[in-house]
């Protein structure tokens, strides 16, 4: 049986961002979005959601301190 690892309690929600969302989110920051933390293209979650190198993922974590925390990772080879 094949299980969905995204259901696991350790795995937060990963979403692929559209070009529009990327330019919206990173237009007024003083870093380039290409310098975001990385996630490998062979990461099991990346494979599960079908993201490709260059995509930016929005990751919504459940945080012990902030309740919900949104962060980003860029898919890399």
């Amino acid at each position: 049986m094949k299980i969905d690892i995204q259901d696991h309690m350790l795995v937060p929600k990963h979403e692929i961002m559209t070009e529009e969302e990327i330019s919206d989110e990173f237009s007024d920051v003083d870093y380039d979005f290409k310098d975001l933390p990385k996630i490998k293209s062979n990461d099991p979650v990346v494979k599960a959601i079908g993201a490709e190198p260059g995509n930016v993922l929005r990751i919504t974590r459940e945080s012990q301190t902030a309740g919900v925390f949104v962060t980003y990772r860029i898919v890399e080879d």
Partner: peptide, 30 residues
């Protein structure tokens, strides 16, 4: 995790590298 009858949500290991390989880098961080 591939076995039947196992809770696929809460079953874990204490091996961080293994979690990274099976569940991804975000799960390894957690």
């Amino acid at each position: 995790l591939d076995m039947d009858g196992i809770d696929h949500v809460r079953t874990t290991t204490n091996n961080i590298h293994e979690i990274g390989e099976v569940l991804g880098i975000e799960a390894a961080r957690q």
